[in-house]
């Protein structure tokens, strides 16, 4: 009897531990990243990752406390945005994606 009573508690403890382990695993924060216009080139931490169409991107702060995203297009002004863990967490809490809109030159 005592065993069956402790089962839900054990299950909850395991679930909380699992969630905590996932949160601390260092796998980063995944957000949808998009740039307007969609054919703009996107660079993350100085490396080109492709064009601006929507894509999930994992912001991993294991090696750097800040990550920067740049977008450029010959007909628009280039933009740069810096992200740290706090900013990404705020965006996740507000369910906001990462959107960069370039201004025409």
């Amino acid at each position: 009897m005592a065993r069956s009573k402790s089962l839900p508690l054990l299950r909850s403890t395991l679930l909380v531990s699992l969630l905590a382990a996932t949160a601390c695993s260092g796998s980063g924060y995944t957000r949808v990243l998009s740039v307007n216009p969609p054919d703009a080139s996107v660079f993350i931490n100085g490396d080109k990752v492709g064009q601006g169409s929507s894509r999930p991107y994992t912001f991993d702060f294991t090696n750097n406390e800040r990550i920067y995203v740049q977008a450029t297009h010959p007909d628009y002004q280039p933009e740069i945005e810096w992200f740290d863990r706090a900013r990404i967490e705020q965006m996740i809490a507000a369910n906001l994606d990462v959107k960069i809109t370039l201004r025409p030159r």
């Binding site: 660079f43 931490n45 100085g46 090696n63 990550i67 740049q70 280039p78």
Partner: peptide, 17 residues
């Protein structure tokens, strides 16, 4: 720049308005 920033720093230069 901060000590903990990414090693590679790319600048995108634009023409003067």
């Amino acid at each position: 720049l901060r000590l903990t920033d990414p090693r590679r720093q790319l600048f995108i230069v634009q023409r003067k308005s």
